[in-house]
Amino acid sequence: MTEGERGPAVVVQDVRKSYGDLVAVDGVSFTVAEGEFFGILGPNGAGKTTVLEIVEGLRQADSGFVRLLGQDPWPRNSALLPRIGVQLQASSFFERLTAKEQLGTFGSLYGVGEAVVADMLELVGLTDKADVQENELSGGQRQRLSIACALVHDPDVVFLDEPTAALDPQARRNLWDVLRAIQQRGKTVVLTTHHLDEAEILCDRVAIVDRGRVLAMDSPAALVRGLDAPTTVLLQRGALPIAEARALAGVDDVVESEVALSLSTRTPAPVLSALAERGALDGLQVRTATLEDVFLDLTGREYRA
């Protein structure tokens, strides 16, 4: 691709898809720039996977406009396939092949030689598991292997559907490192997740999806800022008399519990410096709003993954 042709990696405009009476995707639009890490965030059943499948060319949209690297992914577009990598569920492997053999076999489907296999294993941290059969790997290792299989042919755009679902916290963190490394290789990454913290940590931009619609779309920080929610400053109980805390400039509210004194403010910077001047920073914690609060604000209901 020459520089002049560079456009967005993914364009989705007013896409709709129903299964019988069930409206899975109800007019979704978004654009993903090249090299961007884009997250589609929402609870289970929100329509994230269907959107992803339509963009990948696995399903046909009932209506709307889809372009993937400037081309229509539907019907099966063989010119597009080598340029996209799709991570499927962690069990999408050939029976009883080792990690190395899986990568080699998937690579050969794209005409890629064995040479990249070692590089892929290293990228996902499975070099020492090269000769272990797929069914003997742990859940996190299988997940990483399946991501490596999606990357083996060096695609431009990588789609990851719930890559950290069903992983323990340690395995999730390991995988996040892998995902960051993928972006550093210049790939465009589109990821669906129902973990709000994950989207916040990994994504450049996030589309919050619920019931087949995009409720909000921006960078995680901007979404949280847009909420205009107060920041909570937590101190050890007794670090400061309550009256003195109330008197600080910028503090909206003060609550003392059995263990902590919490100050609510929309201007955390001057409040923190005022606390520092008083030497009252014992047990300091600062809590800002999260995407969870954004979801709550947008839907009026508690976020349930």
């Binding site: 696995l58 063989s78 569920q89 999408s92 489907l109």
Partner: peptide, 17 residues
Amino acid sequence: VSWRKKQVLRRIRLAPV
């Protein structure tokens, strides 16, 4: 059946083969 269930068929469909 196992390739369909495990989405190996989908993976093959997504490859230029």
